[in-house]
Each structure stands twice: as C-alpha cells, then as structure tokens.
Amino acid sequence: MIHALRLLCAVFLALAVSAMNAPPLGAEDGRVPLPNLAKAAKGDACVEPAEVMRREHMDFLKIERDRTMYLGIRDGKYSLNGCIECHATPDPEDPEVRTVEFFCDECHNYAAVRTDCWSCHNPRLVEETPGNAARLPGHSDAGTLIGQLKDHLAKGAPTP
C-alpha cells in the first residue's frame, strides 16, 4: 500500500519536475504552483541518479541513520550532513548562511510531506570564510575558551 502510494507520488513528482522547464502552471489555473528546486550548490551529480534519489532518498537516509547510530559508520554515502553540504543554497536574507529550505522543504511542501529532521539536524550551514570564523560550529570557540582559561590558570585562579 505504502509502496503503491510512494510509486504514485514519485511518478507524479517525476512528471512534475520534468515539466518544470515548461511554463509553470500558474495559480490562475487554481493549482498549486510547482516546486522550484534550488540547484545543488556543490557537486556535479547526486550520490545516485536523480530519478533514484527522487523515489528512494527516504530509505537511504533511514538506513544511513541506523548505520551511524548503532554501528558508528561515519563515511556513509547517504549521510544527512552530506546532503546538506551539497544541497544547501545561499539564504537571500543572510548570505553567509546556506540552507536546504529551497531544496528539501520546497519539494516536501509541494508534496505535502512533513519531516521532523530539522528539529534536531541543522538545515543551515555557515560558509567557511575567514570573516565569519566566530560563527563556525565546532572547535573554534572551544579553542579560544581553552586559551582564555589557560591564561587565567597561569595567573593563579582564585578558587571560588
């Protein structure tokens, strides 16, 4: 049942997406405007052919999720952070930030798919440019913090 639905959905989408170059069916026809997927920011090709990805990305992601969670495999082809790395495109409101909103969410909104991934996984990436190192996630802030603490300790920290 679910499979049949998925197939339908996928066929529909494939048609919809391939029809995207044709003039879009406007809202004046009383129809929901077609999704306008952002072009991938990195890479020439997806991890699988686009037709396969359209239909099966959710299964790939779920398998990858469990492989990472339970088996600690970190270099998987279908990593969610990997999707974000390639598919996040610049946010017009904050050019230092890239987001997958205009790719994943654009399509999901159209197809009425709701995922909760972004309540934990960050759909936004801060571009690595020298100017915004302070906004970068990861160890950069830990490094400065440790530096400050070291200085502090060298001076003889007052034991509170």
Binding site: G72, I73, R74, N81, I84, D116, S119, C120, H121, N122, R124, L125, P137, G138
Partner: peptide, 29 residues
Amino acid sequence: RDIEDPKPHSPRGRGTVQSCTMCVHRVDV
C-alpha cells in the same frame, strides 16, 4: 525547548532525552 542552531555533529531537539555521548562523532573517527 526548541534548540536554536544545533551543531551539525550533535543534533538535539525538543522532546527528547540527551546526555554525554562520549563524543562518538570524534571517537568514531
């Protein structure tokens, strides 16, 4: 509460329990 701007290597979200992961994302590599 909703978590603003979670770290990509350490996803966390409202309504779930969290604790020390012994930094698996580092240990695994």
